[in-house]
């Protein structure tokens, strides 16, 4: 299983903080995103935002980064600290 987190404004938009996805369904950040949109078409407008950031196991990741069972993948908006 892959642990998927949605943070900050994205969590509020999707109405969910976290979910689990079976590894057989996805192999990379891009296919995970595709899987999430296919399973939840109402999320497309938010997950298709090109400014959205992704981290795999606490490191920034591009769409082609591979994911495996036990990984934690987080989707979140551009950061605004400081």
């Amino acid at each position: 299983m892959i642990r998927v987190l949605f943070l900050a404004q994205l969590r509020e938009q999707l109405g969910i903080a976290e979910l689990q996805v079976a590894t057989v369904s996805v192999a990379s950040v891009a296919t995970l995103k595709q899987y999430l949109v296919t399973s939840n078409p109402q999320w497309e407008q938010y997950l298709s935002n090109s400014k959205l950031l992704v981290a795999v196991n606490h490191e920034y990741a591009k769409a082609d980064v591979a994911i495996k069972s036990g990984d934690e993948v987080a989707f979140f908006p551009p950061v605004t600290g400081g």
Partner: peptide
């Protein structure tokens, strides 16, 4: 400001909440 994962949400004097944009 551009890399560390922090997000600010403002509460206005008018009571409205708003996420700060990058």
């Amino acid at each position: 400001k551009t890399r560390a994962p922090f997000w600010k949400k403002e509460m206005g004097v008018d009571g409205a909440e708003r996420w700060i944009e990058a």
